[in-house]
Structure formats: C-alpha cells, structure tokens
C-alpha cells in the first residue's frame, strides 16, 4: 500500500514549523516510543529538508483489514472510519454522525464491534479490522447478510453495514437469547427507515441457525 505523500505544504508557515521542530527536539528525548525514523528526525531538525517534516505529521501504521495487511502512513487525527472510506477505498463502512451516536460506522476490531468514527486509525496498530466488505466469502454471503435479505432488514441500506456487523457481534457476545435482548443490544445502531422489527427477525434467524460466526 502506497504511503500518501505530502500535499501543498507551505514552507513559510512558521508557526507550524516551529511547533514541529520543538516536537522533534523533545520527542527524541522521550522515554516513550518516538514514532519517527531517526534519519527523518535528523533531516528535519537540521531543517535541510522541510518536506521531510511533513512525515512527522504522519505516523506509520500497520494493520490488517479484511485479511489484507496494510503498511500506511497517516495523520494521527485520521479516524479509522475516514481511513477506511477515504484512503483504503472501503466505503461500505458508513459515516452517519461522526460522533458515536448512530452506529453506522460499526466494524469489528480484533473480533469485537466498535465505532470506527471514534477510533483513531493510529491506535489500531497491529490490530485486525473486519468491515462489511470482508464478510462474504467470494460469492457466498455471510449468513447474517443472507438473513438481512430474507427478512428485508433494511430499506435505504445506509445503516445496514453497521447493523450487520453489530448483529454478528450480538450473537457472538451471547446477547441474542431473546428478541428483547436483541432489541437492547442492537440499540446502538440507528435505522431511520425503521427496519428494526425485520432486523430483529434476521438476527433471531441466524442465531437459531446455529451458524459459527
């Protein structure tokens, strides 16, 4: 995976560069892990290569998404959601609120459902991420995907990837033992079209099917 290069950097932006240099100076002294490779630290400290400094706004990140290893370089402020949608061309994970209030961005990280909009990409170092694009096995849909089609668990389809990721986790966690429990444990995924009763049916169906998820 290619590293994104610097963009339109304005070398005259003194305020920015000052902060960056200060960071470089003390970051190399930290007992904490400094994430910059040493030759870049040197290059930037001596201001020989302003362009190199851009790399300090980005940090290396290695993670696995749907079984594919990615070695990336990202700005720390990039969320996992935006990384997936805008940089890894995986727009199946949806942005609904960007504030942890709707569940549309639900993905699995190391097998557990989390909100990718509230997760910094850099904090996923070494982790395994599964998105909606990673569920089907070729043409063979995941049982939860099948069940959503069968029970019409969606209309516009926008919350659907999050619902499906959440639904799978709901069963795995052991929270699908009754319709009432499913409703409670699926309440972090808002569906504005109002497909809830059908979503509950789909999850109950998969649970009953006893598939290994």
């Amino acid at each position: 995976m290619a590293t994104k290069g610097p963009h339109n950097e304005d070398p005259n932006d003194k305020a920015l560069n000052k902060g960056r240099r200060e960071f470089l100076k003390h970051s190399s002294l930290l007992t904490a892990l400094a994430v910059a490779p040493p030759h870049l630290v040197k290059a930037a400290e001596s201001a020989l290569d302003e362009k190199a400094a851009v790399y300090f706004e980005q940090v290396p990140l290695s993670l696995e998404v749907n079984g594919v290893h990615h070695k990336l370089s990202v700005e720390p402020r990039v969320t996992l959601l935006d990384l997936l949608r805008e940089q890894l061309a995986l727009p199946g994970t949806k942005k609904g609120c960007d504030h942890g209030q709707c569940g549309a961005c639900t993905v699995h990280v190391n097998g557990r459902r989390v909100l990718s909009c509230m997760s910094l990409a850099v904090m996923q170092e070494g982790k395994k991420v599964t998105t909606i694009e990673g569920l089907a096995n070729g043409d063979q849909l995941h049982p939860m995907q099948e069940a959503f089609i069968k029970h019409d668990g969606f209309q516009c389809g926008y919350c659907t990837p999050g619902q499906i990721m959440s639904g799978i986790a709901c069963i795995r966690e052991g929270h699908a033992n009754s319709d009432e429990e499913v409703r409670e444990y699926m309440s972090g995924n808002i569906c504005r079209c109002g497909a809830y009763p059908n979503i509950v049916k789909a999850i109950a169906d998969v649970k009953k099917g006893g598939h290994k998820l």
């Binding site: 930290l30 904490a32 892990l33 706004e57």
Partner: peptide, 28 residues
C-alpha cells in the same frame, strides 16, 4: 481538529512522564 502529535506508551510511569513534559498533552 488540529493535527496533534501522537505517542504510544506502555507503562504508567512512561505515561506520567510523557504528560508531565508538555502541558498541551493529554492521555487517550
């Protein structure tokens, strides 16, 4: 969001030390 700097620490001691160096920093 400003493009903050990012550090990863693995011990409480390092976490406390890192924070004390810089009053614009925050744990996450």
């Amino acid at each position: 969001m400003i493009n903050f700097e990012y550090l990863r620490v693995s011990t409480p001691k390092a976490a406390i030390e890192a924070l004390s160096r810089d009053n614009t920093s925050q744990w996450i």
